[in-house]
């Protein structure tokens, strides 16, 4: 038998109030082992209070070659930002 352990992506919440952040990846036979390994590999110095593991194959990523279509339309929509609107200086609290 020669089945390699699949790859998992590891997300760690460093403290309550913060979101889980991608920390890296590792190999493990199943989700439970991925959690245990993630604890040893990524939180040896109290870096986390919560861990998520996701098998890498379940992540769908956008293709950087399509970044133009995906992200450029936002660039000319400056009216979505508060500074687009002209207000006199003596208007306060806005």
């Amino acid at each position: 038998m020669n089945k390699n352990w699949p790859l998992w992506e590891i997300f760690v919440r460093s403290k309550n109030g913060l979101e889980h952040r991608h920390f890296g990846s590792l190999h493990a036979a199943d989700a439970e082992m991925a959690l245990e390994n993630a604890r040893d590999v990524y939180t040896r110095r109290s870096e986390g209070v919560s861990i998520w593991v996701v098998e890498s194959k379940h992540i769908t990523a956008s293709n950087p070659e399509h970044n133009g279509e995906l992200f450029e339309p936002a660039q000319d929509k400056i009216y979505r930002h508060p500074t687009f609107y002209d207000l006199p200086d003596d208007v306060k609290h806005m």
Partner: peptide, 22 residues
Amino acid sequence: QDEAGHGLYLYSACETLGISRE
């Protein structure tokens, strides 16, 4: 143990370039 960890950080960084751990 840290050295094992460092090896693992680096292997997984390397795998993102399309080479397997094997």
